[in-house]
C-alpha cells in the first residue's frame, strides 16, 4: 500500500499536513528553530500581532487549573511591522510556512492591519483574525455581536486578498451563528475556538490568581467542549473549519479531524511537550493505514452525527 497522503486543503491553501501551532503558544515562531524541525509542521501561526507594540498585562499572567491553565498575557507583542521585518524572514529562510495572527482593539485597527499586510505582501499563507478577545469597541466582544462580526470580516475582505481565517470565541451565545456571520462576511475559514473565559481564586490569601482576575482557560480540560463546537460548526457552514482546543495527545488531535476539522492547532500542550506535533505526525500514516484510509482528506469528517455512519473505506 502507498504512503498515505497527509496533505489538507483550506480554501486556496494546501498544507503538507494538518498539524499547526496555535497562536500565543509558540512565541513568534522562531524561538525553537534550533531545537525542533519546525518546517515539518503544516504551518506556524504567529503570536497575535497588533498595529503597534503592546506590553501586555502585569504578572501574574499564568495560573494552573485542573488539567489546564488560565492565561492573561494581554497580547504582549512586538507589533506587526517589527514581526514582518525581524521574525518572518528567519522563518521563511528555514522553509517554515506562516499564518499571521492579527488583532485589533477597534474596527479601524483591524482594517489598518489588513491594509498594512496587503501593502507588504509578506510570504504568508493566510491571515488569522482574532475576534475573540474581550474589551473591543466599548466592551463588546466581536464574536458576540454577529452584525459587527460580519461587517468586520467584510471590511477586511475588501482590504486584502490574503485568505482570512476568523478565530471565534466559544463564549458567544452559539458558535454556529458566529461562524455563519464570518462566512457571510467572506471568510475563507473559521478557527474554532479561542480559550474559554475563566477565573481562579487563592482562598487562603483571598485573592485572584491572575493579576487581571479573569483569563482564558486552555489545556486538556477544554477538549470535549471545543470538540462539540467543532462538530457543530462543520455542520453549519460550507467553509473549512480549523480546530483548536486542548489537544494533548494523538487521539485528541485525530478526534477533531474525524468530526470534520480540516486542520488542527496544538496549543498549551507545547509548553510541556514541545515534541508532541512531530510525534503525532510520525504516527499518522500508520493510523490511516490501520483504519483503511488512503489520505487525511478521506479521514476528515468521516465521523458525523448528521451523516450515516461511514463504511470502512475500501482501498
Amino acid at each position: 500500500m502507498n504512503t498515505p497522503d497527509l496533505s489538507t486543503t483550506i480554501g486556496q491553501v494546501t498544507l503538507p499536513n494538518p498539524l499547526l501551532t496555535a497562536s500565543g503558544t509558540f512565541g513568534y515562531g522562531h524561538e525553537l528553530l534550533e531545537s525542533f524541525p519546525v518546517q515539518r509542521l503544516g504551518a506556524v501561526v504567529s503570536k497575535g500581532l497588533t498595529l503597534r507594540p503592546r506590553e501586555g498585562n502585569p504578572r501574574p499572567r499564568i495560573a494552573e487549573t485542573r488539567c489546564g491553565l488560565l492565561n492573561s498575557i494581554g497580547l504582549e507583542n512586538m507589533g506587526l511591522e517589527a514581526y514582518l521585518h525581524r521574525v518572518l524572514p528567519l522563518l521563511r529562510e528555514r522553509g517554515v510556512r506562516v499564518v499571521l495572527n492579527v488583532e485589533g482593539r477597534s474596527e479601524e485597527e483591524f482594517y489598518a492591519l489588513a491594509e498594512k499586510v496587503e501593502a507588504h505582501q509578506p510570504e504568508i499563507l493566510a491571515l488569522e483574525v482574532n475576534v475573540s478577545c474581550p474589551n473591543v469597541e466599548g466592551g463588546l466582544w466581536f464574536g458576540q455581536d454577529l452584525g459587527l462580526l460580519e461587517r468586520l470580516v467584510r471590511g477586511m475582505r475588501a482590504r486584502t486578498r490574503f485568505p482570512l481565517w476568523i478565530k471565534l470565541t466559544p463564549s458567544g451565545v452559539d458558535v454556529r451563528e458566529e461562524a455563519r456571520a464570518a462566512e457571510q462576511g467572506g471568510a475563507d475559514a473559521v478557527v474554532v475556538a479561542n480559550t474559554y473565559p475563566g477565573m481562579a481564586v487563592d482562598v487562603a490569601r483571598r485573592r485572584f490568581l491572575l493579576h487581571r482576575g479573569m483569563g482564558g482557560v486552555s489545556g486538556p480540560a477544554i477538549h470535549p467542549l471545543t470538540l462539540y463546537w467543532v462538530h457543530e460548526v462543520v455542520g453549519a457552514v460550507g467553509i473549512p473549519v480549523i480546530a483548536v482546543g486542548g489537544i494533548h495527545d494523538f487521539d485528541s488531535a485525530v478526534a477533531y479531524l474525524l468530526v470534520g476539522a480540516r486542520a488542527v492547532q496544538i496549543g498549551s500542550a507545547l509548553f510541556v511537550d514541545p515534541e508532541l506535533p512531530y510525534r503525532i505526525l510520525a504516527r499518522l500514516p500508520d493510523y490511516l493505514r490501520d483504519q483503511g484510509f488512503s489520505s487525511v482528506s478521506s479521514l476528515i469528517g468521516s465521523l458525523r452525527l448528521d451523516r450515516p455512519a461511514t463504511q470502512r473505506p475500501q482501498t
Binding site: G24, T25, G27, E31, R61, I62, E64, I73, E76
Partner: peptide, 13 residues
C-alpha cells in the same frame, strides 16, 4: 510561575 520555561508563552516576566 512559568508556563513553558523557554520563552514561548510570555507568562513569566
Amino acid at each position: 510561575v512559568m508556563g513553558c520555561g523557554f520563552g514561548i508563552c510570555m507568562g513569566c516576566l
